Amino acid sequence: MDVCWRLQERGFTLGFSAAAMVWHHRRNSVRTYWKQQMGYGRAEAMLERKWPKKYNGSGHARWAGRIYGNGLTHALRWRRARVYHGVWGVAPYQSLYEPAPGLLGSLPQMPEWYLMIAIVLVLSAVSLVWSPLKLLLPLLVGVVLPPLAQASLSAARASFNDAPPRRAARVKRRLLTAALHLLQPLARLRGRLQYGLTPWRRGSPGLAAPWPRTLAIWSEHWQDPDQRLQRIEADLKAAGAAVRLGGDYDRWDLEVSGGPFGSARLLMGVEDHGGGTQFLRFRRWPRGSRGGVALTALFAALAGGAAAAGAWAAGTILAVVTLALALCVVLECSAAAALIARTVRQLRTGGA
């Protein structure tokens, strides 16, 4: 991927060649396969550091291609996947006709899904000291079943060139294939975590106050407000930020994501004065994501309920989780606010 992105950055165009071949070294043991997949996770972290604009806030590359084959992990979907060939197989751009896997079908394939399993497992274990948390047991089953189903489906559809004649040997090979499908995201997760590619990582070089702030700039050079916002957007993206533009009815212009739990928004106001001068006002404020705020409120309520019931051990554990979630929201909002503050200050020092 690094070579492809470097070529595209230099103006080259990548194309498809049906005759192209790639030789891939298959590992011959579970141990070497584990090391290989950990290496892939480390490589993803290294690529994210070099190409932050190519990755989203969760640490996954923005890619819209398609891979076809029988040896892949099959996403869970309601309908069977089809490849659009066209009449006599001449139809181009198959991805336009083959819909991408849905969010629910793709989530269990992400390495971070195993973090979700670990969190739900720990909370379910807390039910041993506070019985109301046993209500999480169905949720635990719900987060464990999708990876198992995907691994089983992928192993069942895998093809082997030298299938053994004995049924027991074939079943053993299928079980091993399913186990490798389960190990692959876990190994990638370990490699990603070791090199800092986490959903809670901060792309900002620092932190800023997580409360509303206003900055005023006097400019001797007139410029259209749209062009100023486009410049700010370009500078933010160059710094590796994930930027979203405000819509027609939004009371903000730009939103910078600090991660899955928090972001910061920016609103610009312009006053035109005589002689081509302008007075600019920028207001930024933090915004916790709905999911982050909802999770924090949920665990706070659970901690309060456990404390009210006298289950102090469970209440303490849930309170620690609540504080950790609240800290994530604050840090991500602060990181996004720092990116906005630095970019706006560059307008002042660079001669807005």
Rank of each mutant, 00 (worst) to 15 (best):
163 A>F: 03
163 A>K: 02
164 P>D: 00
164 P>Q: 00
165 P>G: 02
166 R>C: 11
167 R>V: 07
167 R>I: 14
167 R>K: 04
168 A>H: 08
168 A>G: 14
168 A>C: 06
169 A>K: 03
170 R>D: 00
170 R>K: 04
171 V>P: 12
171 V>I: 09
172 K>T: 15
173 R>W: 08
174 R>M: 07
174 R>Q: 15
175 L>I: 12
175 L>W: 03
175 L>K: 09
175 L>G: 12
176 L>K: 10
176 L>T: 10
177 T>C: 15
177 T>G: 05
177 T>D: 09
177 T>F: 10
177 T>R: 03
177 T>S: 12
177 T>V: 11
178 A>I: 15
179 A>L: 08
179 A>R: 05
181 H>I: 00
181 H>Q: 03
182 L>N: 02
182 L>E: 03
183 L>Y: 13
183 L>T: 05
183 L>P: 07
185 P>H: 02
186 L>K: 14
186 L>R: 13
187 A>S: 07
187 A>K: 01
187 A>F: 09
187 A>T: 01
187 A>Y: 05
188 R>A: 13
188 R>G: 04
188 R>M: 08
190 R>Y: 12
190 R>F: 10
191 G>P: 00
191 G>Y: 00
192 R>N: 03
192 R>E: 04
192 R>A: 03
194 Q>C: 05
194 Q>H: 10
194 Q>N: 07
195 Y>D: 13
195 Y>I: 04
196 G>H: 00
196 G>T: 01
196 G>M: 00
197 L>M: 02
198 T>A: 11
198 T>G: 15
198 T>P: 04
198 T>S: 11
201 R>A: 03
202 R>M: 15
202 R>D: 04
202 R>L: 14
203 G>H: 10
203 G>F: 06
203 G>P: 03
203 G>M: 04
204 S>L: 00
204 S>F: 13
204 S>C: 02
205 P>C: 09
205 P>A: 10
205 P>L: 08
205 P>S: 14
205 P>F: 08
206 G>Q: 00
207 L>A: 13
207 L>Y: 15
207 L>D: 12
207 L>P: 05
207 L>S: 13
209 A>Y: 06
210 P>T: 10
211 W>D: 13
212 P>M: 03
214 T>Q: 07
215 L>V: 12
215 L>T: 12
216 A>T: 11
216 A>F: 14
216 A>E: 13
218 W>T: 10
218 W>P: 10
218 W>Y: 14
